[in-house]
Simulated assay, not measured.
Amino acid sequence: MWADLELDGLDVLVVGSAQGTRRVRARVEHAGGRVMLVGAAQALELLSASDRAVGLVVWVEGPESARAEGRALARIRRLPVTCAPAATTTGTVTLVGGGPGRTDLLTLAGQAALADADVVLFDRLGPQESLADLAPGARLIDVGKAPGHHPIPQPEIEAMLIEHARAGAHVVRLKGGDPFVFGRGSEEVRACARAGVPVTVVPGVSSAIAVPGAAGIPVTHRGLSRSLTIVSGHVPFEPQEYAHLHGVGGTLVILMGVNTLIQVCTGLLRAGMPPDVPLALVERGFLPGQRTTVTTVAEVVRRGGMQHATSPAVVVIGAVVALAESSVWEDLARTVEGAA
């Protein structure tokens, strides 16, 4: 409810303690309202007085009898009344997969976690455009990493999660894609568990599957590919690893592989991959400026890499890439790009 609430200039009566109402107060202020924090007895006095202007009553804590009386008084004055849960003193951490970066690809569970957050630590590849509305009143902390640039080391991020949770906050760690697909989510879960901090995980739409689809490339297709291998291209592979990757067949998807693409393609060719195997590079999938370049593994080596390619990008290698050039898939890709 808080993401769409407009309370500009309204006095909002918030009933409860400072600790229990901290989350509600942050959301009211984010929506433009002026908070009047009172206990249950004082709330009944104010609702009984006809000379006090109140635009909304949010009942968080207090005896049920007082809450019922407050509802009756508010009804007489035709004031809207809503209830909200009290913030707990025990902090928690929720790892949320944000998907490829477009807000409407964030899961319902992810949105619910953000709406309940006191603190959000977010990456550069997660949905950021509407983050202030998705997590109204929450403290937003950018801990994103870019290729070759890690301003906040991973151990420090884990320490921040634990510190805020121990202070009683609900901390959301918002990541791009899925937390457990090259997102170091398992490291953060282990750090929280060792510190005794409760942690839950909300899966996300993985860019390894979704971004090729945005370009009209299905990662599996009957008669073309019945297997999918997802690898990180952050560091080039050893010679024997290229042999295994080629030997599996099917579709190969490479994440974080822009800077090592020429080394990877060279290694695959040396391992016996046919030079005419199609390759697609999909940049900024589902985001404004999405671009797909279709070529072959050998052509990437001949050109010395993919000129002017930038991250974030997903590399797809395999026969399914050819489907992106058929008319039906081109229409699909244009539809997705238009919605970005």
Rank of each mutant, 00 (worst) to 15 (best):
I262T: 15
G289Y: 00
L269D: 06
D8L: 06
V258P: 04
R173E: 10
A87M: 10
E64W: 02
F182A: 03
P278R: 09
I76P: 00
I162F: 14
R190W: 13
D11T: 14
V199Q: 05
V15D: 02
H150W: 03
S17G: 15
G272V: 06
G126I: 06
S17Q: 07
L79H: 00
R270W: 00
Q154Y: 12
T89K: 08
E283N: 11
G137P: 05
E163W: 08
R139H: 11
V201E: 07
R25L: 04
V93E: 14
P198I: 08
G55D: 11
D133K: 13
V202F: 04
G144A: 14
V181S: 03
C192R: 01
L269C: 03
F237P: 00
G91M: 04
G305H: 08
T94A: 05
L161K: 03
D4W: 07
E69D: 12
P198K: 10
T89S: 15
V320E: 08
P153S: 03
V321G: 06
T296H: 04
A86D: 10
M36H: 03
R77C: 07
G55P: 04
A112F: 04
L106V: 12
W2Y: 13
L323Q: 09
G55K: 10
P198C: 08
G204D: 00
V301I: 13
P198L: 06
L134T: 03
V235S: 14
R184W: 06
A87E: 07
A159M: 00
A339E: 10
G9E: 09
V328C: 09
L245W: 06
V58F: 02
A117E: 05
G183E: 06
W2E: 09
R166C: 02
V248L: 15
Q111S: 08
L323C: 03
T292C: 11
